Simulated assay, not measured.
Amino acid sequence: MQIITDSSCDLPKEILEENDVIVIPLNIEIDGKNYVDGVDLTHEEFFDKMSKSEGLPKTSQPSPQSYIDAFKKAAQKTGETLCIHLSSKLSGTMNGALMVREMVESKIEVFDSLSGSLGLGMQVLKACEMKKEGATIEHIVDKLKEIREDMKVVVYLESLENAVRGGRVARVKEMVANLLNLKAVVHVEEGYVKVLKTIRGKKRAINFMLDQMAEKNTDFKDKIIGITHCDCIEDAMALKDEILKRFNPIDVLVTTMGPVIGTHSGQGGLLVCF
């Protein structure tokens, strides 16, 4: 079995290579120039270019040829493929996979993670773990459905600037938020990103995210927690330390957030997946 995902999963390159995962890259346009996520644009380069750009970067789903290349590569290696993709409510990436798979003579199962960043990445990791244990595609998909239902993805936004630039929030709301030092915490619900709460001050907002973990009333001792950050590694590591202290999980995976989700989260954003 071959596992395929897209570059919005935000899993480190070494983990993807270790698990032999094929990654289909999404595309980014910044100031009129096109880039391929993870191919000719690293996460660090993306945040640097975004901070200097007058407009908001634009992301788009992979080209049909990218799907064809990935599916053919998978077909040469094995007779069946499991594709796990970014939420269909946030991108056309999964639908692109569904259309192109008809062009390849191979068994290809396409699964909607209904999430993004490590919300997708952690599902990919679980699929890889089950693959190593000899699970069938059907059993893996059944387990991923359970994880998808139970998983919570919460994101702290340092600023509303990108939401304003993207036309999702009015400039006057950003001005009020800045005056009152209001921070937005959003979450993924049924595949969509929705505002969970606006809170005064960064420290309170981060504590609110930790409270969300506590309210889930889950024993995290046998679980891995995921954190992605938008060019704010110190904040991410401080959050990791607090999670380890309060919840004692097996591990906390910390990585950078890529362009697909990072464009909307903006500099200083933090995502926690649990």
Rank of each mutant, 00 (worst) to 15 (best):
residue 264 H to F: 00
residue 51 S to P: 09
residue 69 D to Y: 11
residue 165 R to I: 06
residue 184 A to G: 12
residue 210 L to D: 06
residue 87 S to F: 01
residue 68 I to W: 00
residue 165 R to F: 05
residue 81 T to S: 09
residue 223 K to W: 06
residue 219 D to A: 01
residue 146 E to Q: 15
residue 240 K to N: 07
residue 29 E to R: 14
residue 269 G to I: 06
residue 244 L to F: 05
residue 120 L to Q: 10
residue 130 M to P: 03
residue 146 E to A: 13
residue 210 L to N: 05
residue 267 Q to A: 07
residue 94 M to C: 10
residue 77 K to F: 05
residue 178 N to L: 03
residue 177 A to Y: 03
residue 177 A to G: 15
residue 259 P to H: 06
residue 176 V to L: 12
residue 231 D to M: 15
residue 121 G to W: 03
residue 268 G to I: 04
residue 217 N to G: 07
residue 254 V to S: 03
residue 267 Q to M: 08
residue 257 M to C: 13
residue 175 M to H: 05
residue 22 I to K: 01
residue 195 V to F: 07
residue 86 L to A: 05
residue 253 L to P: 05
residue 128 C to N: 10
residue 230 C to N: 14
residue 94 M to S: 13
residue 100 V to A: 08
residue 197 K to N: 11
residue 168 R to C: 06
residue 16 L to A: 08
residue 228 T to A: 00
residue 197 K to I: 01
residue 196 L to P: 00
residue 237 M to G: 05
residue 151 M to A: 15
residue 45 E to H: 02
residue 162 N to H: 15
residue 107 K to H: 15
residue 96 G to E: 08
residue 272 V to A: 06
residue 40 D to A: 14
residue 238 A to D: 10
residue 214 A to E: 15
residue 78 T to P: 02
residue 215 E to V: 03
residue 27 N to G: 05
residue 62 P to K: 01
residue 197 K to A: 05
residue 255 T to V: 02
residue 46 F to I: 13
residue 157 L to P: 11
residue 230 C to H: 06
residue 86 L to T: 07
residue 48 D to S: 14
residue 91 S to K: 04
residue 232 C to R: 01
residue 147 I to G: 02
residue 36 V to G: 04
residue 237 M to L: 08
residue 146 E to N: 13
residue 82 L to D: 08
residue 103 M to S: 15
residue 153 V to N: 07
residue 95 N to P: 07
residue 99 M to L: 11
residue 21 V to K: 00
